[in-house]
Nucleic acid binder design. Structure first.
Lengths: 408, 408
DNA sequence: AAGCTTTAGTTCATTGCCTGAACTATATGA
DNA sequence: TCATATAGTTCAGGCAATGAACTAAAGCTT
């Protein structure tokens, strides 16, 4: 539940409510209603009143505040058939946030306006394996500045940013707890240096969690409860429940890559034994398929694997088959623990889905019969840049849920 | 997450806020502050003001409402040293709720006043295995009426009730989805018949979830994030995060009994394969220990097992050892999925803890190193009647969180 | 014993916000 | 042109929290 943590805290931990809180809450309600209208359909004040249950008078007043803060703008007229046409409202396209991503072999940044439109995006290849965080962040800051400058002349104001990182993070502390593939342990990131003077600051996300949020926003079926499984070098996951990211008590739930799928299995980089990642991570699959892990870049290895699969090469097929079965075991257990019945496959799991699907469904039927229907096992609808978009989208969403943070 | 669903729903799903909501919210804040004071220490209005951050004036007015509704009462004076003594406030001991439990071989009911004191409690042996729900509920209703009558003369008003059942439930529908050991499938319970005219009605709980809530209330270390594992005929679980029960999108998360701990394992009553319950459920342990499952009642079998363990009988020791290891595997996976780092052992796991602990810790160290410290593996502090007390306590808590439901 | 100090609790004018009704503004259709 | 329908604004009314002033009731001081 993304909810501004109460500042004051008695023994109960809750904050006192005053009349002003009603305003804040309704401000978010109105803005949320405007944001949730389908893109292109700009609601009038009257429609917002209908959607929220507030009176026209209240909505008028609230909308005025949002206009003053520059979060929304009026756009054209909106004929209703008979009667006076309404004035369309939409999230301001001249306010934006910056999405950023650090991954094993690239960094990227994008400017996304409040309506969700990507105004500019740049990716830069860069081997970040076992690189200290300082230079990586410096390179990212430069990339971010470049992307900003490409839209800077259009009078776009960047309000805040989100950074996705492949590892366990503590968002509250802006700390990366562990990122095995970057070689980072307990690294505190100076996020504000990435985006100085942005009123909303920069938030930190786990890569899979950010991708899950992007998936939530772009899902064609509008699913609001699912587990997003991200297959990268590591195997990550993001749990979405009631359209909210479920992060657990310390901010890093959803680590499906380290569910035990084979008690007699091999060692994992996390220190554990028989984790899903030791069977379904990229390196594990490449190795099991007989592709030398140092036989080229990850993308060439993946092409080789796909060729082998299409050729029906037994080792490749068996490697993916095993990954699918073990993924099924992990998802069966996850279904029981968090009561999720819908899975979205991302990263290499999406690419390998044609070969992965059958063993996965078989495994689910064996270990959690009746929990997942096959229509609930789907492929990600956001591509490569899911983490990037999710990080940006989440910052936008947190603004929509607490617009009073902006000057109003 | 126990939270009243918003009644009104626009596209956003949120309800409009008006000034009246502030009153409701602060009413709950004040009542919560009073409830959270240590038993015996009755806070004054001034202390409540300090704890909540509200002004004395507001607290006075809110307290008046709560007094009128009969939820709290004034009790004696509260000397502060210098100055005028405050008037003590406490939850009303003349209002109560009814906790009820249906289990495999007994039914029970208790009257618990709002301060948490058990005023009366009765248990009745009764074999409910494969019994239809009608007669079971009728027997429970009779038991409930009897317990009520024992306190009825003291002018106690019963406001509502909670019923705990060993199976998957949908609390919103008052439906038992499956209760394998009762033989119930998709049974709709007529809960209101148990407690007619109670203003708060009767809520339905999963047994392990209710026990987890009781654990939350009675924990000496005040832990607010933990997994409660209940070893009964089946193996159940309740996840507590931020002092809230985590129930997942459909109300039945925490089913740790059906996490896969052995992909090559045996069939489970749930239809799955290699579930924890097939190794660590009561029947499984008895069988593995060489005790015939029909060699007496469950409690005699348990005594026999304990004797065998104390005598160091190899089969018994190995049975419990195996259960401990597999429990460790399940907890390792759970730690990853929901990010929990603290476990409370309940039911037979509590009884067997001396023999269970070592293999469990070993297993946790192997499969989730660094996730649980040994001090975070503890034994339940509520006994047999945990589910009963938890169901009652949860009803009390939901009243404390929404006192406006009562007439005020 | 009288008075000062300290803390508890109440009263009251003020402010802020939502509401509902009345009103103005702007379109379509007869 | 006028009736009708819908959008949006204005305004009085009500409710809730606030803060300051006030009353209440104790201990401490002299």
């Amino acid at each position: 539940m993304v909810m501004p943590a109460p500042a004051v805290a008695g023994p109960g931990g809750a904050a006192p409510g005053s009349v002003g809180d009603v305003r804040r809450s309704n401000l978010a309600l109105v803005l949320g209603a405007i944001a949730e209208f389908p893109p292109g359909a700009h609601p009038s004040r009257a429609q917002v009143a209908g959607a929220t249950g507030l009176t026209k008078a209240s909505v008028s007043s609230l909308v005025l505040d949002l206009l003053d803060a520059g979060i929304i703008r009026e756009i054209g007229l909106n004929p209703q058939g008979r009667g006076r046409p309404g004035v369309g409202l939409e999230l301001s396209p001249s306010r934006a946030v910056l999405g950023m991503e650090i991954n094993v072999d690239y960094i990227s940044a994008a400017v996304v306006d409040l309506t969700g439109t990507v105004l500019a995006r740049e990716e830069q290849e860069r081997d970040n394996r076992n690189r200290p965080d300082g230079p990586v962040l410096a390179a990212l800051a430069a990339l971010a500045a470049r992307v900003r400058s490409t839209v800077g002349e259009q009078g776009i104001e960047v309000l805040g940013g989100g950074l996705a990182v492949p590892g366990l993070v503590d968002p509250a502390l802006a700390r990366v707890l562990t990122a095995p593939n970057l070689g980072w342990v307990n690294v505190d990131l100076d996020l504000d240096a990435l985006l100085p003077e942005a009123p909303l600051g920069v938030e930190l996300f786990n890569e899979a969690n950010a991708a899950a949020l992007a998936e939530l926003r772009h899902r064609p079926d509008g699913a609001s409860n699912f587990l997003f499984v991200s297959g990268e070098v590591g195997v990550g996951g993001g749990i979405v429940i009631g359209s909210e990211l479920f992060t657990g008590p310390h901010g890093h739930a959803g680590e499906v890559g380290h569910i035990v799928v084979d008690p007699d299995g091999g060692h994992c980089s996390c220190g554990g034994t028989g984790c899903l990642e030791t069977v379904a991570g990229q390196d594990a699959i490449f190795t099991a398929a007989g592709l030398a892990p140092d036989g080229g870049s990850r993308s060439t290895l993946m092409s080789l694997l796909l060729q082998a699969l299409e050729a029906g090469e037994p080792r490749a097929v068996s490697a993916v088959d095993g990954a699918g079965r073990c993924l099924g075991i992990a998802l069966a257990s996850t279904a029981r623990v968090v009561n999720i019945d819908s899975v979205v496959l991302g990263g290499h799991f999406a690419v390998l889905e044609p070969w992965l699907r059958a063993p996965l469904l078989e495994s689910l039927a064996k270990y959690a019969p009746g929990k997942y229907s096959s229509s609930q096992v789907t492929v990600s609808s956001v591509g490569e840049s899911g983490a990037l978009l999710g990080a940006a989208g989440s910052v936008i969403r947190s603004l929509v849920e607490a617009p009073h943070r902006l000057h109003a």
